[in-house]
Design a protein around this nucleic acid. Sequence first.
DNA 1: GTATTAACTTTGATCAATCAAAATAATATC
DNA 2: GATATTATTTTGATTGATCAAAGTTAATAC
Lengths: 221, 221
Amino acid sequence: MPSSTVENYLKQILIVTLDENCSKVPMGKVATELSVTPGTATSMAKNMERDGWLTYYPRQGVALTRKGKKVAMNMLRRHRLLETFLVETLDLDWSEIHAEAEELEHAISEKVLEKLDQFLGRPRYDPHGHPIPSKGGVIQRPSSRTLQSCKVGMKVKIDSILDQESEFLKFAREKKLLPGREVRIMGSEIQADAVTLKVGRDQPFSLGFRSAEKILVLEVV
Amino acid sequence: MPSSTVENYLKQILIVTLDENCSKVPMGKVATELSVTPGTATSMAKNMERDGWLTYYPRQGVALTRKGKKVAMNMLRRHRLLETFLVETLDLDWSEIHAEAEELEHAISEKVLEKLDQFLGRPRYDPHGHPIPSKGGVIQRPSSRTLQSCKVGMKVKIDSILDQESEFLKFAREKKLLPGREVRIMGSEIQADAVTLKVGRDQPFSLGFRSAEKILVLEVV
DNA sequence: GTATTAACTTTGATCAATCAAAATAATATC
DNA sequence: GATATTATTTTGATTGATCAAAGTTAATAC
């Protein structure tokens, strides 16, 4: 059984992994995410490796093992189901539920969670629109679509780049069109055969449909 | 803020205090109640005294301070409201709720508790018939105890019957074991697993602990 | 190709909660 | 009253989680 501290580390590492679409999470990131000093993160990583939750690659970061990922997914499920309950049933304010769920997710048993899921009608998304992992720990993630198909104003996250041509990848890197990045669609005009997008605070720029087609994105809710 | 360990000590000490109607709880009792070694109980007592939760009388026991009692009462409130929720709303089995509430009571915030109370319609008794302390930490009336827990010679008044099984209720009616009736405890023997009681001028009879447990009584002074 | 900087690791210390086992005090027994 | 028993306290050690500060590496800059 993981302690609730370990559960927190696992969950946060999973979130970063999914979010940035990377395999190893650097220790610095772990430390800031959990609000501990880097030294603490390193020593926890070693203990967690000893207990089989993750693999620790010195000076590179940590990656969850299958066992660790399973628990982490379950934490996400707990968190999101609890947030749903707090909003739907107890009518708590949207702004408070995160912190509340953060506490409760460590205390709720599998059995109570199952009953809660049933009571709520087995919701698939939490109040923020995030998908709730299934009992087996699977996130049925919203299927990705091409950048070309996006509507103006949408906020999307880059999922993957289909073209492996190095020239194109180089261009994509320069424009920060990398997996995990969030992008806003500023314009999309069939007649102009182009989409205009903005990455972070950079200057907006346009991509022809030919290129936009090569970029798969996920809608951010 | 007390840690959840401290919360457990406080709650358990309060329960023993109410139960045995005594002011000081001896360390041995504290230790067994919390399933720790006597040494641990002693050292916790010292720390808790330092933090103002209780007064520690060496070789005699501990007594809650006002501050400690307030927190302990609140724990009882949390516990009982949660048990109510688990049975009423989530339909958990009567036998499981105690352990579940034991975990959740440390994680639930005052705000969520308040919403839960509201959602449940501000119940005054938990599923076992125990009174739920008010927000201010007041128990509305002398807490009832099970018939099984009574000492020989006590005179008690029946408060409620927990088992709603019709066969059992029929039996209870025959024996005049009905709310309001006064009963005298003629004998109670753990080895025999039975209590012997007398209702009015009727012939005394015995009840197995299994059944005696289902009957809540109030002590008559 | 060295110097600077940023990221990471080590070291030594602390705190809460616990145990086992030895020491001490209080109570009961003869 | 001396002894045996039981309850309690002390002592010394451990474990998990943490920090501050010093020490290493690797990457970046110049």
